[in-house]
Amino acid sequence: MRLAMLEFMQWFLVLCSIGCLIRLILGPRGADRLVALNVLSGVALGFLVLRGVQLGQVLYLDVALVYDIFGFLGFLAIARFLKDKLADQEDES
């Protein structure tokens, strides 16, 4: 029962991440892609926690903790990069 539930939730999260990836590829502008990436990071976090509980290993949860705290620094970097790129395009045109 317990292992079956954990296994099922992992497959469900895989399906969710496929949906996010479709949005990531389709998204017409940079902001839509960042939205998909935001949801995807939460999905990855839930997957790490489920995997750690299923195998009973603490190491997965340590990785999840660090990924949680420093995850949004990645968004900051990507947002800054995209803004610089937009400004460059406006300068050229």
Partner: peptide, 17 residues
């Protein structure tokens, strides 16, 4: 930590838009 970091990520994306 997720209660702090998740709205921060959403706010960064919204501010970029």
């Amino acid at each position: 930590f997720f209660l702090v970091s998740s709205p921060t990520g959403a706010h960064i994306v919204a501010r970029f838009a």
